[in-house]
Design a protein around this nucleic acid. Sequence first.
DNA 1: GGGCATAGTTGCGATGTGCTACTAAGTGGT
DNA 2: ACCACTTAGTAGCACATCGCAACTATGCCC
Lengths: 229, 229
Amino acid sequence: MPKSPEDTMPTSGRHEMPFTRIEIVVLSVIEGRLGVLLGRRAQAPYQGRWALPGGVLRIDQDKDLDAAARRVGIERLGVELPYLRQLTAIGGRSRDPRAPWTLSVIYRALVPFEAIDPNPGKRLEALKWVAADEAAADARLAFDHAERIGGALEVTRGEIDRLELPFEFLPQAFTLGELQACCEAMLGRHLDKSSFRRRLDERNLLEAVEGQMRTGAFRPAQLYRRRCP
Amino acid sequence: MPKSPEDTMPTSGRHEMPFTRIEIVVLSVIEGRLGVLLGRRAQAPYQGRWALPGGVLRIDQDKDLDAAARRVGIERLGVELPYLRQLTAIGGRSRDPRAPWTLSVIYRALVPFEAIDPNPGKRLEALKWVAADEAAADARLAFDHAERIGGALEVTRGEIDRLELPFEFLPQAFTLGELQACCEAMLGRHLDKSSFRRRLDERNLLEAVEGQMRTGAFRPAQLYRRRCP
DNA sequence: GGGCATAGTTGCGATGTGCTACTAAGTGGT
DNA sequence: ACCACTTAGTAGCACATCGCAACTATGCCC
């Protein structure tokens, strides 16, 4: 058995290191449904297939993993991704035929879909929004990305269940109806109005914007905003 | 802004990759308390300080990250770690002065403390068990390991709260009292006997080993085992 | 046989949450 | 003027979960 003491010096090149990437599961609510952003691969492997946007970790540029994910978001999508959360790391042989061993750190971002221009220029390939649940079950996606999307959905829905609210998808001031519809879109299921509201104000998560109402075709609704987090 | 298209070929050496390690938070229940296994560092940095056991990812040996964690467990601790769970990845500049950029994938293992011999031989440095809550608050630990231990505790206690039971720490057949004591040790707080039992059998997690009782100084107790998982 | 420590059960009350039903307040059609 | 319609917002009840306290049961030991 090879010796491998704790203090093996990480002299550069002593051991080969994995080819390390960042992949981002970008979620948004579009027309009442949760969508995920995919990019079409221009080259092999999986040429022409849809995949999560991602990029190579650049240790010369990135201060840490979070910074790497932010840079990848800007370079590949043209947007700052403010609400990044790391989900997991996946690594192994033969994940990507271009390198003997690859490691991907998976992030999740929540971004209003209008913020991303699907065709910003030549250096970015085609992007599209896809219904998240279908993407998670779509075996045709590149690599193991369908599974990664499934993991992101589970985590994200857990957050909504625990009333970690998706303010990213809402205007500064919003009605309780809008908030509920947004949560329902993310969960993919109906929520009960009265218990949703009871849970909200037991937790003191919101404050009413006094005097301000959303007026529309029907009865005006009180506007709320996030209580100083 | 540098171009960084999706399909940058991972030609080995085109970009420098981070020095990648595995660190393992090994937890056990010892004398009614949750403990974590630490090793004393033999060399700089943090020479003489206590740290999580870990090792370098070896892409020539390890099929994937989980396999790397298993190998590190065997090489550094002399045990198979069957219940490994990946927690997170941490990476950045200046985490470890020996390399410009390091990435650590953190695992958690649950192992009965008797399974690990603190002094198995020369190639392993001194190991010791420390009360987990104290280690999580101990700023003297090497690197950011105290914080990692805190994260492991949070995840592990969440599992117990959701009644993902720590069979790793129990014999094949055990009493409900033993199970409850084990959970209490892990959570660091008291559990109510009657509601603990109610929750257990609502979920059908256990089955009685018919006719078998644990006899001791007092009233014998029914033995249970895990219901076919 | 009685004390004692653990095993195991029962009942109650507090809490959280889903369901149903209700009232309120606007628009727009007749 | 009135009513249908739609959304906003509230109230009451049923049910499940769970903590707490009290109780019974059963063995060992003195």
